[in-house]
């Protein structure tokens, strides 16, 4: 029964699409509670990010305040996700040696034939962007990095911004603290 419930919920989420982004939006609201809405906070522009790995290594927090987020509305729910599987995966099962993520922070679950959902386990994510590169290279770019404001200290000088080779870090208003990848990209795959 419980399993069925979970499956139904997952399916609803899948069919709703975009709920991941919506959840991020809700979290954005929560994170701004108690903050002055006009106060600038750090964010990274996912369209500029070149996935250099510094978001994982340079943040003053360990693990980093930068996390992978997933635009469910864009995702193809592919059986074979190269954000999830290593390019040379020997078999397409969920064992650690087949996974792109070095910390096992992406969970894969079957939704309905032939769709699979990929969920980021944020506490495990270190913001390394390896899955982001895989998704950008072989998929449609629905995995991307964001500074999560429920943990970011909003340092005066962000240690990542100081070294980001893509100049992807910007100051944004605390009332709109995330830069989403949106519906308009839903089928882009880098081809547009």
């Amino acid at each position: 029964m419980k399993n069925d419930d979970k499956k139904t919920k997952a399916r609803r989420r899948f069919l709703a699409g975009g709920l991941g982004a919506a959840a991020l939006g809700a979290l954005a609201q929560g994170s701004t509670a108690g903050r002055r809405a006009d106060r600038p906070v750090w964010q990274l522009d996912p369209y500029l990010c070149s996935q250099c790995g510094r978001c994982a290594t340079e943040c003053v927090l360990k693990p980093s305040a930068v996390k992978c987020v997933h635009a469910y509305a864009m995702c193809g729910y592919c059986e074979l996700c190269f954000g999830y599987f290593l390019p040379g995966a020997r078999s397409l099962d969920e064992s650690a040696e087949n996974q792109t993520c070095p910390t096992g922070a992406i969970r894969r679950r079957f939704i309905e034939e032939p769709y699979f959902e990929y969920v980021i386990d944020e506490p495990l994510c270190i913001g390394c962007a390896k899955c982001v590169t895989g998704c950008n290279t072989f998929g449609n770019g629905s995995l991307f990095l964001q500074v999560r404001h429920d943990r970011c200290l909003n340092c005066n000088e962000c240690a990542i911004a100081a070294v980001c080779p893509a100049d992807a870090f910007v100051r944004v208003s605390a009332s709109r603290p995330y830069i989403f990848k949106g519906e308009n990209d839903s089928t882009s795959g880098g081809l547009s």
Partner: peptide, 12 residues
């Protein structure tokens, strides 16, 4: 900068 988390497809 050496990216310790590099996603490499060189072998293919």
């Amino acid at each position: 900068h050496m990216n310790p988390y590099e996603y490499s497809i060189e072998e293919f």
